[in-house]
Write a protein that binds this DNA or RNA. Structure first.
Lengths: 192, 192
DNA sequence: CTATTGTGAGACATTGATGTCTCATGTGGG
DNA sequence: CCCACATGAGACATCAATGTCTCACAATAG
């Protein structure tokens, strides 16, 4: 095959395969292992050499999504400045991973009850802490729990990612759309 | 079998089966036809006599979800009074169908590109019109498009339904949680 | 040059869900 | 009493995806 001539170490390929799979499964969450392999430009046999099976692939994608979320959270500096600005920064940083997040969000819904990757709990805690900080600073209202705000953030990211993929909204509006709705809501501010 | 002794017409059974399937698929969207049949208290053969196949069942559930949405929208009187209050009424009325809606919302994501039930477009239009009315009345901000607000409403309903099923939030808070976030956002109002 | 290694292609068995069929049963209506 | 009909149970073929295997080929290192 006219494949790349580099001395491809498996570690490098693995990341490329993971990215391709993420991009494909974002658009079609039921894609076959065959389709995943084709999308990555490799054969199904090689795909199986990287990931023992579909489960292993999804779990690797989960780890990738969690890592990207963590990295985005780090870059957003959630402890710094106004909580609202931190949320805006977080959404800007997390946009590139939004498609993968949306896929994993939908995937988690059908793992009824089963235990999930510990990373999600840690992420929930980090994001929940951001909302709690905003509440304690008197910046956010206290009648909406941090748990619900975190849940709503995930849901809006998934909705935004899907609406973007379908072309119903523009990708460039993604971060502000979500941040403005989540923070300010639909009602006009009278005091401005 | 110790089945009900009524002269069960198929039309009556059909609705019962549909409700059971909705309740089950809400919790486990990948449930087997066998599981759906068992959940409805009938055999797989009888299930197939009601619905030609899985596709037919899902399409019937889609029609049911759309009908319930339409009914909820009617009961909410979206043209009446403040748009914000109409949104609150809508969320109260739509809560019983939230689980079904969440299932259908997730199901729609994996029908890449394919044509969808016309009913969704009509619902989108009705809900979008409500947001537009709020904007024209100066009640809602105009920098968030009605399309995005509609999308966000669906997403938050699904998020709320899943968070409720998992026990992360209380079912009684469902309508206010979503309405308060969607309308008012997380930020405190300074003018109150 | 030669051995090693990763790869693609494809065959193969397996599994799980699905759709179709038959047959016995039980019930209600005529 | 008898017939029609819906049902439940189960057998059966089908189909798609998966996982495993072998083998030939190309590239690279020694």
């Amino acid at each position: 095959m006219s494949h790349v001539g580099y001395p491809c170490l498996m570690a490098l390929d693995r990341d490329h395969v993971l990215r391709s799979a993420a991009a494909l499964l974002t658009r079609k969450s039921t894609a076959t292992m065959d389709e995943v392999a084709k999308a990555a430009g490799i054969s199904r046999a090689t795909l199986h050499r990287h990931f023992a099976g579909r489960d292993a692939l999804v779990r690797a994608l989960e780890a990738l999504g969690i890592a990207e979320c963590d990295a985005a959270l780090d870059r957003a500096r959630p402890e710094e400045g106004a909580a609202a600005d931190a949320v805006r920064r977080l959404l800007r940083e997390i946009q590139p991973a939004a498609g993968l997040l949306a896929f994993l969000y939908g995937e988690n819904q059908l793992w009824e009850g089963e235990r999930q990757h510990d990373g999600w709990q840690r992420l929930d805690a980090r994001i929940g802490a951001l909302f709690q900080r905003g509440q304690q600073a008197g910046e956010f209202r206290i009648d909406l729990t941090p748990v619900w705000l975190t849940e709503a953030l995930y849901g809006l990211i998934a909705s935004g990612a899907w609406a973007t993929l379908d072309g119903r909204v523009a990708a460039r509006d993604f971060p502000t759309m979500i941040a403005e709705l989540l923070l300010g809501g639909a009602l006009r501010r009278e005091e401005s």
